[in-house]
Each structure stands twice: as C-alpha cells, then as structure tokens.
Design a protein around this nucleic acid. Structure first.
Length: 300
RNA sequence: GGUGCCAUAGCUCAGUUGGUAGAGCACAGGACUGAAAAUCCUGGUGUCGCUGGUUCAAUUCCAGCUGGCACCA
C-alpha cells in the first residue's frame, strides 16, 4: 500500500486546523475537512471555518461546499470523500483528513451500510406521531415492524427509534436487515492521530473563541438565517442559543454562557468518541515534530 | 450599638420531629450505522461556618463567636 489517508481528530478548539495546515504544508498535500457543519455554505462564524488566509496556505475540500437547504449525511459524505480521494491520490501519496465529526470519519475509514433514501414526508409523519404519542407510541410500533431493532436499540433515544421505523416502513423490510456491520476495505492506508490538551486550557480556548464569534457578528449571521432555522445545520451549538435570544427567551449574556457551556459538552462528547477507538494516539497540538515521527514510522 | 433572619456540594437551594444529607445547574464518564455540533444513558464530588454545651448519638437542640442580609437606633 503506497497511498495514505492521515486522519487528525480531536475536540473542538484543540488546534486541529493549525496542525492540519502545518502538516499538509510539510508533506506538500491537501486537506479533506471532516466537519459536519463547516460543510455548509451559509454558516461561517458559528462553525469556525478556517480563515481565508488559512485556506490560501493549503487547499481544503468539503469546506462550505454544500447548502444547508439540502439534506446531507454521513453516508453521502463517505461517497463524496472516496470519490475525491480517488482524484487526489492520482497526484499525492498522502492526503490529510482533519475534523471532529467522529461518525463522518468512521464512514470514510470503515464504511457505513447502505440504506435507502428516506422520503422526508414519512420522517415528518413519524416525528409528528412521536410528538403526539410520545416515546411509548413509537416504541410499540417498532416492536411490530422490527423486533430485532427493538431489542438492540436504545429505547430511550427517539432518534434511533425513528430511524429504524422510517427505514422499515418505507421499504417493508426491517431496518436491522440492512445492517451488516462489515468494515469496508479501502485501497489506501489509514493513519490516525488525535489532539488534546489540558482540560482547563481547552475550556479557556473555547470561551475565548465564543467571545470572538460574538465580536465577529454571530448574532447577525444567525439573524440572516432565520428562514432556515428548522434545518439540521442550524440545530447546532451557537445557532440554537442565539435563536433563543432572538426569540427573547434568554438574554444575550445568557445565550453566550449557554454557547460556552454547550461547546464544552460537545468537546467532551468528541473526546469520548475518539477515546473509544484505540487506534488514536494522543498528541498535544504543539507536538508536530512528534506527529511527523509517528506518521513516518507508520507509513513504513 | 440593638433586634431579627441566614450560613449545607463549584453555584442556587431543599432537608434531617436528633441516628453524619439530596435536587437543579456546573463538572465527570459512557452509548451511538444516515439529524452526529444531533440524540440518549450513568455518576453526588460534602469538616452541613467555627468553638463549646446537652445527649448513647448533634448537620439538626442550646450558648458564644465569625461572616452576610434586613430593620431599628
């Protein structure tokens, strides 16, 4: 194997962007962003996309390439990235993938089973049923259409139940029958590493970054997106809290504190994701020399 | 200066008719194959202000002290 995808993961605000650019410059290659929110065109400030000067240093892919008006998910990301890698590997032996969206990274590295595209009106109907009858109502229906999923799925989690229901109902086949859990073989090597730092420092960086976002005009950005507020892309940290402020549900200061708090929670959740996967060795963001040593050793 | 009230987890507070205490948030850990910055689960981290007294036993009752708040001077 002579082609390598080098994955740089880690929590938000841990310095992935800077490290990715430094390493991509060193190896003379390009970066695939693995960020489920920076992929959207319409959002900039709240998603902390790399700056124009950063983007000029190294070519990035999947940054602000899709509209939040269009439905997107991890499976489409897998397909799109593999296609892009095919092209990039004609020119480069090494390509970097940098980002904090664990499921998206996993879809590219290990694959994700194929599922039919779901009719959005069916999803809306099932969501309505959940609102009306609560979790018990959709649980009962799942038990009928897909008992295997009923036994396996976290039955407190309505998203999981709704997913299984919509697939089962639309196809007439149980959701569980689509899942093989087989790791897909890739024709390139994968080298993973993750960034972390002292927790207090990480939280300070998060707090500072939120203040910078507010200073950069996050409130105006959110205001301008009012008409899309029901889209998935805007159910993100930073957007939902500002909408709540614009609705007069909280003060601006409260909204800012909430964004900081929810970003901290998000960072912890990301750490959990990368930790469970023992394939990620951990690095401080300033240890680029050690990362290079590790990458070179892995490629041999 | 006097009187009254308050002092319990990082914060806001509840509670124990005397048997060393529990909620929310914060914080920490985890799950997660198509909404994933989503969604869901788990965990109480404590010199109950200090010093004495009463009691088999005090965070709880009593006294004093310290700090805070309110009112009266």
């Amino acid at each position: 194997m002579n082609k390598f995808l080098i994955v740089i993961g880690g929590p938000t605000a841990s310095g992935k962007t800077g490290v990715g650019i430094a390493l991509a410059e060193k190896y003379g290659t390009e970066i695939i962003s693995a960020d489920s929110r920076q992929i959207y065109k319409e959002t900039t400030i709240g998603t902390a996309v790399p700056s124009a000067s950063e983007l000029k240093k190294v070519r990035h892919h999947f940054i602000q390439t899709h509209s939040l008006k269009d439905y997107y998910n991890a499976s489409r990301y897998e397909t799109d990235v593999l296609e892009k890698l095919n092209i990039l590997f004609q020119q480069y032996d090494i390509v970097f993938m940098v980002g904090g969206s664990g499921l998206y990274i996993s879809a590219v590295c290990s694959g994700i089973d194929d599922l039919p595209v779901i009719d959005q009106t069916l999803r809306a109907k099932l969501t309505e049923k959940f609102r009306e009858y609560g979790i018990e109502g959709i649980k009962a229906q799942l038990k009928l259409v897909d008992p295997d999923s009923y036994d396996k799925i976290d039955l407190n989690n309505h998203f999981r139940i709704l997913k299984a229901l919509e697939v089962s109902i639309q196809t007439g086949r149980p959701y569980s029958s689509f899942l093989t859990y087989q790791t897909r073989k890739r024709d390139f090597g994968i080298i993973r590493l993750a960034l972390d730092m002292n927790r207090t420092e990480l939280y300070n960086r998060i707090n500072q970054r939120v203040d910078l976002m507010i200073g950069a005009g996050l409130v105006d950005e959110v205001k301008s997106l009012e008409k899309y507020r029901d889209k998935n892309a805007l159910k993100s940290v930073g957007y939902r809290e500002i909408f709540s402020y614009l609705d007069n549900r909280v003060s601006l200061d409260e909204a800012i504190d909430l964004i900081k708090r929810n970003t901290r929670k998000y960072a912890r959740k990301q750490l959990t994701w990368f930790r469970k996967d023992n394939l990620y060795p951990w690095f401080q963001p300033d240890e680029t020399d050690r990362m290079v040593t590790y990458i070179d050793a892995q490629m041999k």
